[in-house]
Amino acid sequence: MKSCIPICACLFSLLLIACGGKEEKKEDGFSVTRTKTEQKSESTAPVTDEVPASKRVILDEKGVGQIKSLTLDPTIDTAMAEAGAAIFKTNCTACHKPYKRFIGPSFDGILERRSPEWIMNMILDPQLMVEQDRCAKDLLVEFNGAAMANQNLTVEQSRSILEYFRTL
């Protein structure tokens, strides 16, 4: 999967050259050999946390917000998951891709890292979570200060997105 990307990019630029009038000679810009330091420096991320917030497993934490406890039925409600997918598409895809990090984190296997309550609270009131929940706060730092948007969803709508997340 990964190795496909450079090839695609190559093809793409070939295509451009083929059809686009005059094309600038490709300048590669400057490059510095440096590896991106993970955000564990100084005061921002606590030194003790080696694991980036997006990878951290915090299944025991419910987060901060109106959802205090939630038990999931062992079987996935597919109708609910479908409704959730539709809401996700209009409200969330501007910043999230289900399987890929974009503006915000990927949701691949999210239920193995987060409790259902934590996820619901993050969707329903991200401002409060970022202020008061340790992991949410660290996520904000990890994602360069990009804000998780409050899309003003109802509890029911958020619940169906959660069901959709279970299918990922």
Partner: peptide, 22 residues
């Protein structure tokens, strides 16, 4: 709009009227 507001930008490429660039 946000901490990354200064990043909120884009480009439009404008070619000559005769261009066939799709």
């Amino acid at each position: 709009c946000s901490a990354l507001h200064q990043e909120m930008q884009g480009y439009v490429r404008v070619s000559p009227a005769s261009s066939s660039l799709p």
